[in-house]
Design a protein around this nucleic acid. Structure first.
Length: 473
RNA sequence: GGUCCCAUCGUCUAGAGGCCCAGGACGCGGCCCUCUCAAGGCCAAAACACGGGUUCGAAUCCCGUUGGGACCGCCA
């Protein structure tokens, strides 16, 4: 039997970290077993479902490269199926009509909670005579007994039916509810493995009972542990960004998130770095842990940096371009991009950081940080800078090695140490004291801009080099 | 309140009775390298929640305690 998994989000918000991991594990399990991965949109709550959310979820999955084989299926387009199933259950007396008013139910629940009683429906309509002309909901008649299932992650779990309430299958407006839809669809779509968050454990016995009532094959279940925030409560906006797409905006590589999410709850020995194919090859539910995990942004950041360091510059370029664009720089036609990326990848943990750090390469005019200029653009350095400029003009090709040679000559002739020359040059070229290695940076900046900026620095250098009090030469 | 789930360094985890006075990774601290910042290399601190069993032997199995979490909707 081919393995079929599904990811079934409800379009009531963006794709969040937890949902993304559920989707990923379903994807990996299906791929690993050469099965199919189905996408189903659970939009039976018309009031809360939006097209915007739907797009956000699809966008998130595509960004993470979690491609589905089938769907998306929309539950809102399958309402007839669910009603049919409910009618069938009604017919077999496995379900019954309930005339209780929702408000009344709500009141009873609140009262029960207040009195510390289980807030469960008491089943009073099981035996109630028909109330013609009254709107009714359809409830499942939970049979007596006990349900056991063997969770692929958590192991054996069983529930006494006495703990289950007669759940609503069809609302009084005849729209179906979650548990019914899930079971009907998972059966119809021949889902073999239901992999979802462990907040669904309590739903599982109800769903198993429904499968049995409807004569469907019960799939295998695997309940993933929750992802928690730093305070060990369920991950939410309070803990920072939870939207997958927010990570794109922050300059994360999609695969860094995938790798991080995979390792949150799953492991393969001591390994930390996994490409997508490697994940597919190595993923198995046996290696998924049972306990919930805390989302650790620092580790994600480390992974992101790892992938920034190892992804070819050519692949990084279009991504960097996007971030530069939001900073108002259009570098699409700039041929230096790949060289620039190479100088920055070791020191930028996100693409956003890289874009910001690369700004000096693209600016027409740079401005000096006051402190930096004051400290390094001094009288004494004027001549060496002139000399350097002169030497650099002759450098051809303008490669890192050749630039270094020009520097060596200047150092030789002036007796300066590299540090004494490099920092002023750095300020002259970038405006600040922090940048990539001086030679690689100069080569990436390009001959024209380098010489232009050094010469430009010669003027203000004289003006700003007023010696500090007591240090008069 | 009831039911269910979970429990190894701060965090993610390895560990499927002896290989473990517990290994890796992130982060943190130190040192080295060094033209700045990084990156890199090396070193260090840091955990089997507790109590009972079972066993020649337990982080690993069982029970209990404690602590965390989830669920208890005509939401999904």
């Amino acid at each position: 039997m081919t393995v079929r998994t599904r990811f079934a989000p409800s379009p009531t918000g963006y794709l969040h970290i937890g949902g993304a991991r559920t989707a990923l594990f379903n994807y990996l399990f299906a791929r690993h077993n050469r099965g199919q991965f189905v996408l189903r949109i659970e939009d039976t709550d018309a009031a809360r479902s939006t097209g915007e959310s739907l797009n956000a979820i699809l966008e998130g999955m595509l960004w993470l490269d979690l491609k589905w084989d089938e769907g998306p299926y929309y539950q809102s387009k399958r309402l007839g199926l669910y009603r049919e199933a409910a009618a069938q259950l009604l017919e077999k007396n496995l379900a019954y009509r309930c005339w209780c008013a929702p408000e009344e139910l709500e009141e009873r629940r609140k009262l029960a909670l207040k009195e510390n009683r289980p807030p469960r429906y008491d089943g009073r309509c099981r035996t109630r005579p028909a109330q013609p002309a009254q709107p009714f909901a359809v409830r499942f008649r939970v049979p007596p007994g006990k349900t056991f299932f063997n969770d692929m992650i958590k192991g054996g779990i069983s529930f006494e039916h006495a703990e289950l309430e007669d759940l609503v299958l069809l609302r009084s407006d005849s729209t179906p509810t979650y548990n019914l839809c899930v079971v009907v669809d998972d059966a119809a779509m021949r889902i073999t493995h239901v992999i979802r968050g462990d907040d669904h454990i309590a739903n599982t016995p109800k769903q198993i009972l429904l499968y049995e009532a409807l004569g469907g094959t019960v799939p295998s279940f695997a309940h993933l542990p929750m992802i928690l925030g730093s305070d060990k409560t369920r991950l939410s906006k309070r803990h920072g960004a939870t939207s997958v797409m927010a990570y794109k905006e922050m300059g994360y590589l999609p695969h860094a998130l995938v790798n991080y999410l995979a390792r949150l709850g799953w492991s393969s020995g001591d390994e930390e770095i996994f490409g997508m194919n490697e994940l597919i090859e190595k993923f198995s539910l046996e290696n998924v842990g049972k306990s919930s995990g805390v989302f650790n942004p620092e580790k994600l950041l480390w992974l992101n940096h790892h992938y920034i360091k190892t992804t070819p510059a050519g692949e990084l370029k279009p991504l960097l371009l996007q971030h530069l664009k939001t900073l108002g720089v259009d570098a699409a036609r700039d041929e230096r991009c790949e060289a620039i990326i190479s100088t920055l990848r070791e020191r930028a943990k996100t693409l956003k950081e890289m874009a910001e750090a690369s700004l000096f390469y693209f600016r027409e005019k740079i401005s000096y940080e006051e402190k930096a200029a004051k400290k390094f653009l001094t009288h004494e350095i004027l001549e060496p800078l002139k000399l350097l400029s002169k030497k650099l003009k002759k450098v051809e090709p303008f490669s890192e090695d050749n630039v270094k040679k020009a520097f060596d000559e200047v150092l030789e002739e002036t007796g300066l140490k590299l540090g004494e020359l490099a920092q002023p040059v750095r300020v002259a070229l970038t405006g600040g004291t922090v940048s990539p290695g001086i030679f690689e940076m100069i080569a990436a900046l390009g001959k024209e801009k380098t010489i232009e900026r050094i010469e430009e620095s010669l003027t203000p250098a004289a003006a700003w080099s007023s010696p500090r009090p007591g240090k008069e030469e």
